[in-house]
Amino acid sequence: MITLKGAEVSAKIKEQVLAMNGKLGGYVPTAAIVRIGERPDDLSYERNVMKRIAAYGMETKSYVYPADITEEEFFAEFQKINDDEAIDGILLFRPLPKYINEKRAEQMIRPEKDLDGICAVNTAKVFAGEKDGFAPCTAEAVIEVLKAFDIPMEGKRAVIVGRSMVVGRPLSMLMLKENVTVTVCHTKTKDLKAVCREADILVAAAGKAKMLDASFLKEGAVLIDVGINVDENGKLCGDVLWEGLEEKASAATPVPGGVGAVTTAVLAKHLAMAAERKVNR
């Protein structure tokens, strides 16, 4: 079994981004990271994003607001960032506090700055198969992994376990664009194991630790594990139990070190694309 390591994919994306930035005439793309509160997982992701973007020769600005900021105060500040011409892309950390209308934020963000594909315009473009819409980074990272390792997609059967707007649904559209036959599964899917065993490419994106195991794979299938969970021992794990996969899968992404490592690289690529479009418009 081939282990599909995210670091190898990120290195290829970095080459693309550096080439894109080299054509900007010295202009340095800048991303705004917008965060409310001090959640540990947000802080960890923020550090990873800032490190990645800096490594790609670009810049970030952090906009951090207290957990007790009012809704109107937050949206007033968010609008300023949205309108700032020095900002090429925005990463809004979600979920927002329950008292802040997240849909309003999604509707407000300018599509050309929407690095993680959360606004309705980018969603529509992804579902319409248009090239200039930003897809959610995790969904796009799956496609980047498959392409980087030259895993054939055209004509293949894929099963995606999970129907969220962050991964499952947009990924199904990205796969259709690659001429994959896609089935999206969820909690109401009958005989989930039988459906999964029909897949040439199985994507686990349910967000439930070790929900699937080798018995869900057909012989020689490619497994893409998108899940990032914490197991009973406090260690990071995916949606799939790794034990036994070596004898069944032809290739699989590890957790950690798989798709998650590519997600921030895709974010950086989106920033470079946003800056390129601004400079050339």
Rank of each mutant, 00 (worst) to 15 (best):
E219L: 04
L217C: 14
L217A: 10
L212E: 07
A274S: 14
C237V: 09
A214I: 09
N233E: 13
T263N: 09
L236T: 07
K248A: 04
G227T: 08
L271Q: 11
G258D: 08
T253V: 12
V230D: 03
E276G: 09
A265H: 07
L223G: 14
G260Q: 08
E219G: 00
M273V: 15
G234K: 12
A221C: 01
F216W: 14
A249T: 12
K248Y: 05
G234L: 01
L271N: 07
L245I: 15
C237E: 03
V279G: 05
V240K: 04
L271R: 09
I228K: 03
L212Q: 03
A251S: 02
K235S: 13
K235W: 06
L217E: 05
E243V: 12
K218V: 12
S250H: 08
C237T: 14
L241T: 15
E276F: 15
S250N: 03
A214S: 14
E246R: 04
D225F: 13
G238I: 00
E232A: 15
S215Q: 11
E232D: 06
E219K: 15
K278S: 15
L236M: 14
G220A: 10
D225W: 10
A221H: 06
A272I: 12
F216Q: 01
S250G: 13
G260T: 08
A249D: 05
V226I: 14
A275D: 09
K269N: 13
W242H: 10
V230P: 03
H270A: 08
E247C: 00
V240I: 06
N229C: 10
G220L: 06
G227P: 08
A265R: 08
E246L: 06
A275T: 14
A274R: 08
A261P: 00
L217I: 04
D239Y: 10
S250D: 07
L217G: 12
H270N: 15
A214M: 03
L223T: 10
A252N: 06
E243K: 15
A214L: 03
G220T: 02
P254A: 09
V230T: 15
E219I: 00
R277E: 11
L271S: 05
K269F: 12
L212Y: 13
L241M: 14
E247G: 04
R277V: 14
V262P: 11
E243R: 07
R277N: 05
G244D: 10
V259T: 00
V262I: 01
A274D: 01
I228E: 01
D239R: 11
L267N: 05
V255A: 01
L236V: 06
N233K: 14
A268W: 06
V259R: 06
S215V: 11
M211T: 01
A249W: 08
A251K: 08
E243G: 00
A252E: 05
A252W: 07
D239M: 11
L212T: 01
V266Y: 00
A261H: 02
G238V: 12
L271T: 04
K269M: 14
G244W: 03
P256L: 01
D225S: 06
L267Q: 09
G234A: 08
E232L: 03
A214T: 00
V240T: 13
M273E: 14
A251D: 05
L271H: 09
A268Q: 04
A249I: 09
G244K: 00
V279I: 15
P254H: 05
A261F: 11
G220D: 03
